[in-house]
Design a protein around this nucleic acid. Sequence first.
DNA 1: GCGTGCATGTTACTAGCGGTAACCTGAGTC
DNA 2: GACTCAGGTTACCGCTAGTAACATGCACGC
Lengths: 213, 213
Amino acid sequence: MDTTQRTEQQRSADRRRRELLEAADRVVLRDGPQASMNAIAAEAGITKPILYRHFGDKSGLYAALAKRHTDALLASLRAALDAPAERRERVEATLDTYLAAIEARPQVYRFLMHPAEGTQGEQEFDTGKHSAPLLRRMGEELAQVIEERLDLGPGSQQLARVWGHGIVGMMHAAGDWWLGERPCTRAELVKSLADLLWGRLAAAGDKIGGPGF
Amino acid sequence: MDTTQRTEQQRSADRRRRELLEAADRVVLRDGPQASMNAIAAEAGITKPILYRHFGDKSGLYAALAKRHTDALLASLRAALDAPAERRERVEATLDTYLAAIEARPQVYRFLMHPAEGTQGEQEFDTGKHSAPLLRRMGEELAQVIEERLDLGPGSQQLARVWGHGIVGMMHAAGDWWLGERPCTRAELVKSLADLLWGRLAAAGDKIGGPGF
DNA sequence: GCGTGCATGTTACTAGCGGTAACCTGAGTC
DNA sequence: GACTCAGGTTACCGCTAGTAACATGCACGC
């Protein structure tokens, strides 16, 4: 029975941790990325210190919270990337999956994109690494898929990584802008972005009278 | 003489304002986006309240500060976009201009990209508008150039805007990742991104044995 | 039965942030 | 000399992240 007791304790801790994460989720969904530790603790029915005992500090909690959503979104994207269809169709499906996700839960999406920004965290922002982890992970995932499937000749790995991060950034920025202004339907946005990736920029003709872009 | 006196007073105020902005610039360059109002005031040799008298609140100061850099960067980009050369060359020059700017002053760049995030600001983040103003402005500028110069058929304006924001996002994300990891030279990055925009993704062949991306 | 760990939870605090009210001070004007 | 008014300061508020110290309950070995 002692083993069951030990597992019982661990289970209890894990369950508590999951409960806390779900409470944090609710608060973030309501208050956005500015959700305070106090508010999260109150939502969970407890006080701050036990939150800190579970997650270390705010970035720890946010990282745990972000990992759940990031994992879920990445799984959806992988499914779209792996679907049995033509390349263009798969690209469009991936774009649409991402856009549908951010459309359905803008608060969560915003939280994932601007997580850190701690009032007084470590100052080691000299070079980079400040970008949202979700963007980086998506970029690396896409790079891997590109490198696995496409024949890009010499330097393919590096090219695939550049493209992975570039395409993810394109998707992100366009989605962000689209969410704010809603200038067109999701399907139209998907098609426009796919057209861009399909080289329509290079193929387009100059306007009459102009020197061309 | 009263007019000169009034202008003298206004000049004095404007000069002070510029001095404060330059002090703020120095602090942001040193401390990054977490630069506190206290630190900025101390750098300027004064105390907080007069900073607030000049700029209202933190976001006001940051907006004034961001406008300077944004204007400067946008001017450089416009120059690259307007250069008398072929389209591909111009695209590469624009990419390179942007990347050179963020490479030269990563702190400023980071400040421009993550400005707000006030601890207790207005909560109206429901839909969008949380993206960095620099990104939006660059996207709109690029959209305008594309729409002016390219013949894209029906729906050209909307297409141009999607592309503008998408390309800017691509540039941003790839540059961010590149700044952090430095996996290649700037020239290589520029060429890879231009290749992506030129449709090499669609043109690439499948790898042997795979279903193709 | 009784102390001993140990996890869980609390109150009460520190240090620093953005922002503001109230006060002070010195130059110019009638 | 009194009066005004811009420029500047001290001292504060309410908030935040994070922590130390104290309390409580529950399983163990003796």
